[in-house]
Design a protein around this nucleic acid. Structure first.
Lengths: 250, 250
DNA sequence: GCCCTTAGTATTTTACTGCAACTAACTTAG
DNA sequence: CTAAGTTAGTTGCAGTAAAATACTAAGGGC
């Protein structure tokens, strides 16, 4: 046993990653928010080769000296671009093949973040490396994207729609305080269809993932609405979609 | 534009990954089957450092010269260990941090495979690198595992149970021909509870992911059962669990 | 003070699950 | 040859939950 341990120390002292042909490994982010009543995604204009000057998902290489783990890399990139430090963040999926990056065999861990639209300070970066919100149209975005980022985005949109349908996750797209109608609106914007009010409110009551803010109301030119905030709960999963119809054009 | 392209060529001709500190990147596999009426997972005994002689998930480094993409790496490893060439295979999740591998910052793409238990030729490899099936007990397996493989396995088991509950995926754990009772048995073994027969058969009918084999029956000492095979359909998702009770001990 | 609008609740109607009983088709024992 | 035992597969019913819709509540504007 002790021999094995000594063997291992011996082995490690001679190990050098630069002796091997390894792939590039990066982390990319799909950052969603709802602005102007519409789902939007954050893109950055690339300041360097390859794909210089094309729009792409924010991301970059793992800094093996500064980053403890993959999530730390993702959070660092998110913070650099948006200033947001406590987003909803989950891993989307890995992508890796010979051809996605002209520099060589490349793999990436794609992450998926939700942030409220308010108080976001986008990174400018002198002309290049600028960040900007783009509207999500159906399954994609208007500009052509670098690498295989269009594919990653499409998968992220699917995943988002699915999670909005089946989990309590949409609360992360709203600011601190919100009304139930606003939360329902988020559902409708992301899913692209109306949602039944009583089914929606029943889910809210049963899920316990939001709580009333005592004595807080949003006033308008009609009956005031109760204000809610996120409860300190992990994501809740529901096993059914909610009722609703696809909106008809009129 | 042409200038940008020339710039990019210039840039690429000088790019050398060995100039950078990069993480290790590997692919690991969680291979499930149902044998002896019980869920089992394939492990290999490590023949080399680090963690020499410990049990671990099968896997290894991406061979950037032979592997087209991540899935190709996963399929190659699966084939080397089991001989199986057409498994059900999906990506589980990525794992990566500073500490999981003593050789340095390491990331892995974990895959999740289902294979039928029949006709599997396990790799022997002279004493070391031997592959063996282990019973899944609750959320883990009896031997201690190398790296963070116990964590990866636990997540894979959760994912499997969830998918068995909500998708048509269990068909991939059975051989070419099977009866509906056998398929129901797979559900019960993986989920650890009984499943209602009529709810189960209703799901089968609606899902269209299996088809009757004409004139084929399994005979026993009682009424013969119709034989079925997988239909050529992608995985079907259901939005409800099926009825059933947790088995009571007697 | 009435109307309009949005918030929020109650009721009815409809569909489907969960459960259990039932029939079907074979083998084996006597 | 028949009865018993076992597993395959279907049917029917009752309780429950979801979808649809009608309703009440509470403000502001005029």
């Amino acid at each position: 046993m002790s021999t094995t341990h000594q063997d291992e120390r011996e082995f490690l002292s001679h190990y050098n990653i630069h002796d091997y042909d390894v792939p590039l490994t990066s982390v990319d982010l799909v950052i969603f928010t709802v602005r102007e009543e519409v789902l939007q995604v954050l893109l950055v204009r690339r300041g360097e080769h390859p794909f210089k000057e094309m729009w792409s998902l924010p991301g970059g290489f793992i800094d093996i000296h500064r980053d403890q783990d993959l999530e730390a890399t993702a959070l660092r990139k998110l913070r650099e671009k948006t200033g947001v430090v406590t987003p909803y963040l989950e891993q989307l999926q890995g992508f890796g093949n010979k051809t996605r990056d002209p520099r060589g065999w490349s793999s990436t861990f794609a992450y998926f973040a939700l942030i409220p639209s308010e108080h976001i300070e986008l990174a400018h970066g002198a002309n290049t490396e600028a960040a900007q919100w783009f509207r999500v149209e159906e399954n994609s975005v208007q500009p052509e994207l670098a690498f295989d980022h269009a594919q990653i985005l499409a998968i992220a949109i699917l995943r988002l729609r699915n999670k909005v349908e089946y989990t309590s996750l949409p609360v992360h797209l709203l600011p601190e305080q919100f009304t139930l109608s606003e939360l329902q609106g988020i559902h409708e914007v992301v899913l692209g269809r109306t949602v039944d009010k009583s089914a929606f409110r029943k889910r809210i009551k049963e899920g316990n993932f939001v709580e009333e803010i005592p004595d807080a109301w949003r006033y308008g030119s009609n009956r005031p609405a109760k204000l809610y905030r996120r409860a300190n709960q992990p994501t809740v999963y529901f096993n059914r979609a909610m009722g609703g119809r696809v909106e008809e054009k009129d």
